[in-house]
Design a protein around this nucleic acid. Structure first.
Length: 372
DNA sequence: AACCCATTTCCTGTTT
DNA sequence: GAAACAGGAAATGGGT
């Protein structure tokens, strides 16, 4: 195989790995701009960019493909605690499984087994972890390639970041940007199956899940903010001054809960605004686990309706890592879109909205044109 | 650091 | 009366 086709194959595989989910906005870095971190740093980088960097669990440092049953169990336990999932509702019929079997499960299978909330969480985590190790392997291939073809002409177009190759580097932001963009999940978290389905019937066990209460969620920096009630916030702030209107500070900013996060990517995934999230639910209804969350009222006109408003809000909250999202709050954001003409008002019809002239990507022709 | 943007949060009042 | 809708006000947090 020629060096050019070899490089092409490596990058194609990498792209397929990272974009296989058909995200609505796959920010595809071009060959001319992609920054390639040195292989030796890759795992480290993905650790840093992962929100679970502080979890030194064995499973976290291992490709899911190689997980033992115990690793799988630890991983599930971790997510049960993280989502404060009521473990007692889990069916014990899901017997133990090892990593290879787990990796064969489809998203639907996971959702069937663990439900919408935990299932989605597990699926996302699994896809991310798989991608993390797949990316690592891709870079190994690339490093080998670079050694083998040091004078490959296309290399002048590839930006290999020297700062990263230098162990004294300090700034990862540019890499995080790329890595963030390369996230395997579609932004909405209900992407089509990227884990190939196979025979396995999805046998997972939950022998001894630690109860959700047994440990504080502080173990996960990303989910370190406990659920405070309105009362709590009011009391806490009321001592300083009367709780004004507006948004209270996020607890994750509290240093007590925000330890060791200086290396974590500080920005939420970009590129998906609320209206895009809504649009994607509408144009990919098959990705909602047969939940009819929304529907078109008038496809041509862009009129749509929320069927399960709170479920959509929860999904939006999940995406924004905000478990307290509600339809009431989501709808306020929707109403702000009227002024910007991203949405047009639909009077007199509850839960019905209409895309405006400043929204894109929802028209049938657009979708067909761009293969969305 | 300061500013902007896109929300998020809260709230009061109105409509369905 | 409950659920939505409206929209003001203020706050957050990522990005520049």
């Amino acid at each position: 195989m020629s060096s050019a086709s070899e490089l092409c194959r490596i990058l194609t595989n990498a792209n397929m790995t990272m974009y296989q989910t058909g995200s609505s906005e796959p920010l595809q870095p071009s060959l001319t701009t992609v920054s390639l971190p040195a292989v030796g740093d890759l795992l480290h980088l993905s650790d840093l960019s992962s929100c679970s960097a502080n979890i030194l669990a064995q499973w976290y440092d291992l490709n899911p493909q190689y997980w033992s049953k115990q690793n799988v169990l630890e991983w599930i336990s971790f997510h049960v605690e993280r989502t404060k999932f009521d473990a007692s509702t889990l069916s014990m019929s899901y017997c133990s499984t090892d990593g290879p079997t787990l990796c064969q499960l489809t998203r639907d299978q996971l959702l069937n087994m663990f439900g919408m909330s935990l299932g989605t969480q597990l699926y996302q985590s699994l896809v991310e972890l798989k991608a993390k190790y797949d990316l690592n392997e891709t870079c190994k291939l690339l490093d080998n390639f670079l050694e083998e073809f040091p004078d490959f002409p296309l290399l002048s177009t590839v930006e290999v970041n020297e700062v990263v190759r230098d162990t004294s580097y300090t700034d990862f932001s540019h890499i995080f940007k790329n890595f963030e963009n390369m996230k395997p999940l579609s932004d909405n978290g209900y992407e089509s199956d990227s884990m190939h389905s196979s025979s396995s019937g999805g046998m997972l066990s939950f022998q001894n899940p630690s109860s959700p209460e047994s440990r504080s969620s502080e173990s996960d920096p990303e989910f370190s903010y406990p659920q405070f009630t309105k009362v709590h916030i009011k009391t806490e702030r009321g001592e300083m001054k009367k709780r004004g209107r507006g948004r209270p500070p996020k607890l994750s900013r509290d240093p007590k809960h925000f330890y060791q996060t200086s290396t974590k990517s500080k920005h939420a995934p970009r590129g998906t605004h609320l209206w895009e999230f809504i649009r994607d639910i509408l144009i990919h209804p098959e990705q909602n686990q047969n939940q009819a969350l929304m529907k078109w009222e008038d496809r041509r006109e862009g009129v749509f309706k929320f069927l399960k408003s709170e479920a959509v809000a929860q999904l939006w909250g999940q995406k924004k890592k905000n478990s307290s999202m509600t339809y009431e709050k989501l709808s306020r954001a929707m109403r702000y879109y009227y002024k910007r003409e991203i949405l047009d008002r639909v009077d007199g019809r509850r839960l019905v909205y209409k895309f405006g002239k400043n929204s894109t990507g929802w028209k049938v022709e657009e979708i067909e044109l761009h293969g969305m």
